[in-house]
Amino acid sequence: MTSDPQSPSDPDSPSEHAGEVVELSSASRATDIALDELELVYAFIYARVGNRADAEDLTQQVAMKAIPRLRQGAPASAIRGYLFATARSVLGAFWSTRLGLSQVELHEDLAMSIPQGPPSDEQAERTRRILAGLSDNYRRVLELRFLHGYSLKEVAAEMRSTVGAVKVMQLRALRAAAKVDPDA
């Protein structure tokens, strides 16, 4: 069924074959390729919503919206870009709907860069830079709570404070974290 005599698994020199029309031989392989692209989208979305259920719903929305749009002759460079443009649109709608805000009011950082490869430690590095931009107390409460999974009581005990005080500190620390630019 494959009309191209070369191996369809040769992804190294796509530009040499630009515009050449082929029929792919394996539906399952083809789906796998698309899923690999959506894997990047999933990681991108998860990093912004912080939970699996919402990340799965939004990734599915991206697939539904973007895949049919990808048609013959689409420039290769634009396809991943299109997926991520769709992901940004879906994320913007998610936050604006959940918070009852317009996307203009939201001010969410939706002009995010497109990942160039598989999920990496980039997110961890961004988090490290955000935490490094906070005062000691704010950094400590967020590290214990989010990175080490401490309960409020455990954080209070560790910081020799009260649960009530830790809750207030957590809120203020999150507000401060939102103001840190990890790319500065």
Binding site: P8, S15, H17, V22, I33, A34, L70
Partner: peptide, 15 residues
């Protein structure tokens, strides 16, 4: 599909 589109960016789902 174009080979380029299918191979590089995962549009192979069309198959």
């Amino acid at each position: 599909l174009t080979r380029r589109a299918a191979l590089v960016a995962g549009l192979g789902v069309a198959a």
